[in-house]
Amino acid sequence: MAELLSFRSLYASDERHAILAGLTLHVDRGETVAIVGESGCGKTMSIGALLDILPDDVSITAGSIAFDGEDVLSCRGKERKARLYSRIGFVPQNTSDSLYPLMTVSEVMTDAYMHNHPDAGRRQARERAAMLLSSLGIEDAGRVLSLYPFQLSGGMKQRINIAAALMDDIDLLVADEPTSALDIHIRRQIEALYASLSGREGLAMLVVSHDLGFVHSIADRVYVMYAGRIIEEGMRDEIFSDPVHPYTKALIELSTMKTRDRAHDLPELGRLASAVDRESPACAFLPRCCCRRESCAVSVGYACLSDTHLVRCVL
């Protein structure tokens, strides 16, 4: 399958700490890929590096990103936007804040589209927006288009953001934590929506999430990220049925715990050591690992378990 997006040994840091430490991953055309890992591991920063929306004090120090065979990092700002934004749709983590409060849904959806397509009229754009909303299962699209963000529920804002991202005929949809902070009933609906998108012809998805249930329901392939790099990758079933890295195992165990036992404390993973040196060749998970060996403190490399299943662990 043709490669659409690739990160090669990407390093990024702020003034004091390394944030990404040799991040390598790729997304093929039409494929749904998920990056999982806990808060602070660098998931959102990797998206920021692609879309040029990193915080001011974070800079990329080494490595490369390519989209459709072209180097992405060589251009910034407006040039990057012009090149990527009509081909990559983005659904940010906080969908409430990403809708401009003084613009109606219709304006939010059509403005960016008309910017990318100067010859398209407002009316044509609005028709397209209405069609998209209906295709995402929103009844009464005409009425919804005339509403302001404060009149929308959380689940509806999610859907509007997804629809806005799909206004152009994009090759890649990037979504940051699409299900966090939604209640379970709405989460199921959003999950179903992403599942239907993941089957869409020609649309690849890169989804960043710590919600493993969601990832399991939509992803073809999964990357597990820890302290700025990938520590395990594989096809969905390789990761969920046959995890190798102790961190992956722990994450999956936590997420499949169905009922919490009142009599006991909840199982913890052990605290994330904030002082860990992300660029060190040693294993960053070492301080929390249940099965560490002496060599882990020196260096640890990647081991191939199959053509697609790769793990950064000595086990």
Binding site: E38, S39, S180, A181, H210, A250, L251, L254, S255, D265, L266, P267, E268, L269, R271
Partner: peptide, 10 residues
């Protein structure tokens, strides 16, 4: 509700 599972547990 905005924390991931392992931190939620803590």
């Amino acid at each position: 509700s905005s924390l991931d599972l392992s931190i939620q547990a803590e």
